[in-house]
Nucleic acid binder design. Structure first.
Length: 371
DNA sequence: CGATTTTGACCCGCGC
DNA sequence: GCGCGGGTCAAAATCG
């Protein structure tokens, strides 16, 4: 299971700017490990042009690596959906101890073009009453809702829903096409915050969880959260608003933990030093097993999000690979003692034969069968 | 008892 | 136009 000696984090981000047509893609690796010969400061990465050739040189990446993010090309509007994880490009991290990350195009990243269906009006305001069974909306069809910036990252984890400091409420779950794993939809519970996120397990590599964020938090981190990252970092690192944050990516990067930009770090022992905030936190909350996963992840996602806002990249694919740490199963086991749920008589259910939401139980059986 | 999760139905864009 | 599939709603169930 987990190797508690190694707390390295390896980040890879693919920035995609398709304004030029052929979308220039690049993949960046941020590693605290010296054993990674291709190490390069993220700051430098960000300042470098989005030229894959140079990146290849800098990181020693093979050109084929870009295939990992194959979804970027030729996808102006249509993206590779989670279910279409066809490309079996797999990539092996050249770092110690870790993690082979194999997956294809950032699955969960994005799929649909712009469906303006989200944010449907709750309660039918007025409109001719009629079948107001559900959210009938009177939305202008003309204007397409501008999609909020999205970004996704992959985390090797046994828990699906990683703690990231914010409070989320699950509002849906859907089966992913061609994948035995469901996709869960979460919304930030803070009022007036429209941030959403989707969580799904990679079909290619079940140990990898793909989290896709959409939107930006317009509020500070809740402080009441158990093990919240709030309070662990200086305020500047927790500001949710990009306006309040560093003006440039490298500035933000400079605020990141040492182990992420300290080239002199020693591999495999990141946890020992230059880790003050986390170490302290670790002592304070020893039982918080996900610490190692969460903190850097959150920092990085915030970071990437800000980068996205400062640039005109349309897509940013981020991978966060971490050594497995804790095996905390966050699955709620159904209570067998309770009576089965009954069909609501007043709510007519017209099953049109379309398989929509997939229950955990169903999926579980599928998994078992496939194992 | 309020908050959160579960989960079938509904909505809607898109491809055929 | 139809059907597929992603995304969302919302009532009931469950949790804390």
């Amino acid at each position: 299971m987990s190797d508690h000696e190694f707390r390295d984090f390896y980040y890879q981000a693919a920035f995609h700017n398709d304004q030029q047509g052929v979308g220039e893609t690049g993949m960046y690796r941020v590693s605290s490990s010296l054993q990674d010969p291709s190490y390069m400061s993220f700051t430098d990465c960000l300042h470098s042009s989005m030229d894959y050739g140079s990146l290849e040189k800098a990181f020693g990446l093979s050109p084929s690596s870009s295939e990992v993010f194959s979804s970027v090309e030729g996808n102006q509007t249509k993206q590779v959906g989670a279910g279409d994880l066809g490309g079996n490009t797999s990539e092996v991290m050249t770092t110690p101890n870790s993690s082979v990350s194999s997956s294809s195009s950032e699955a969960g990243c994005e799929e649909d073009s712009d469906k303006s269906k989200k944010d449907r009006q709750p309660k039918g305001s007025e409109d001719g009453g009629e079948s107001s069974k559900k959210g009938n909306k009177a939305k202008k069809k003309g204007e397409k809702k501008q999609r909020e910036p999205r970004f996704a990252f992959m985390t090797k984890s046994e828990v699906d829903h990683l703690e990231d400091g914010y409070r989320w409420r699950k509002y849906g779950q859907k089966a992913v096409k061609n994948s035995p794993y469901p996709r869960s939809y979460y919304r930030c519970t803070t009022q007036k915050c429209t941030v959403k996120k989707r969580v799904e397990r990679s079909f290619q590599d079940p140990s990898v969880v793909i989290t896709t964020y959409e939107g930006q938090h317009n509020h500070p981190l809740p402080t009441t959260l158990r093990g919240s990252a709030a309070g662990l970092f200086p305020p500047s690192m927790l500001t949710p608003s990009p306006l309040a944050g560093p003006s440039f990516p490298h500035e933000l990067f400079m605020q990141m933990p040492h182990h992420m930009n300290n080239q002199a770090g020693s591999a495999g022992s990141m946890f020992a030093e230059s880790f003050s905030p986390f170490q302290q936190y670790h002592h304070q909350v020893p039982d918080y097993g996900l610490l190692q996963d969460i903190v850097p992840s959150r920092l990085f996602t915030d970071f990437v999000q800000r980068v996205a806002l400062k640039t005109n990249f349309k897509e940013i694919h981020v991978r966060i690979l971490t050594p497995k740490t804790e095996s905390k199963i966050a699955t709620r086991k159904p209570n067998p003692t309770t009576a089965p749920r009954q069909q609501q008589p007043w709510r007519e259910r017209k099953n049109k034969g379309r398989a929509k939401t997939t229950s955990y139980r169903t999926l579980f059986s599928i998994l078992q069968a496939s194992c």
